[in-house]
């Protein structure tokens, strides 16, 4: 389970393409894909290997006009699902 202080980046080799207002994320060597809505796509973009999950929650709350505590549970669950799918990894992972 990720923690607020954790930092993640997008796994190397992952390929993305916008489709409508969604983002298709393909993990080639796992033959898997994930489709992200605009918020999910923004979280992925913010996972730059420097920002913590807390930083990302603050940024998302700010951008979408929500209270940080409102978005926190979703950010944490979302990050966990992307870690489980091997889309997000610790920096250098």
């Amino acid at each position: 389970m990720p923690n607020w202080d954790d930092v993640f980046s997008v796994r190397e080799g992952i390929v993305t393409r916008e489709s409508g207002d969604e983002l298709v994320v393909v993990i080639p060597d796992r033959a898997k894909y994930v489709v992200l809505n605009p918020t999910g796509a923004r979280v992925l973009a913010l996972a730059d290997g420097h920002r913590t999950l807390q930083d990302i929650a603050v940024a998302i709350a700010d951008e979408f006009g929500e209270a940080v505590e409102t978005v926190q549970p979703d950010i944490l669950n979302f990050a966990r699902s992307l870690v489980e799918r091997d889309v997000l990894v610790p920096p250098g992972g």
Binding site: G13, I14, V15, R17, S19, G20, E22, L23, V24, V26, P28, D29, A31, Y33, V35
Partner: peptide, 24 residues
């Protein structure tokens, strides 16, 4: 949904979908 269609079409592209060089 176009995104789901694209995903499934890519997933059913043998050989090439498994490779990051070809995938874009």
């Amino acid at each position: 949904r176009p995104s789901l269609a694209l995903s499934e079409l890519v997933a059913n592209t043998p050989v090439l979908s498994a490779d990051a060089d070809w995938l874009p």
